[in-house]
Amino acid sequence: MNEERMSVIVQTIASILFPIILIFSFYIIMHGHLTPGGGFQGGAVGASAVALLIVAFGARYVENKMREENLSAFESVGGLVFVIVSILGIFVATTFLTNFLVGEPLFGIIPKWGVSPLNSGGVLPILNIAVGMKVIGGLASVVLMLAIASKEGEK
């Protein structure tokens, strides 16, 4: 029996709660331009799901399941998407970080009073998703690395 793991009750509850917390995190990120919240907040919620897994199953097990390199790559992809969308504003429109999708039929419909369609906001949903990827990957990898390092320090 692995010493790092908690009891079966905690493991079961954690494995039930993990997808629910992740779905809530994705909901906050996706609706960042409609409801309170956004990329940072949803990313912090998603990282807390990974922290819950680490508490329940131990850092070694989680590290074997989701490699730390993958989380770092996820984070870097989020940062790249943010910068690329920002720089596209120079070429498509006028300046850095221009909201060049507003008014387009695909993403940028301007909502009428009282309705909140998901495909509004121009580049804001894309930037929200990018920042959410960045925060989920970054905070989760930091929590994972700190947990592993503290386990190794005890030996």
Partner: peptide, 23 residues
């Protein structure tokens, strides 16, 4: 809302008007 198309004015400030800050 007219300029950014987002219902949430806070997000339109954080990601559009002050996008440098978020970067």
């Amino acid at each position: 809302v007219n300029e950014t198309g987002a219902n949430n004015a806070v997000t339109s400030v954080v990601f559009d008007y002050r996008g440098y800050d978020t970067l």
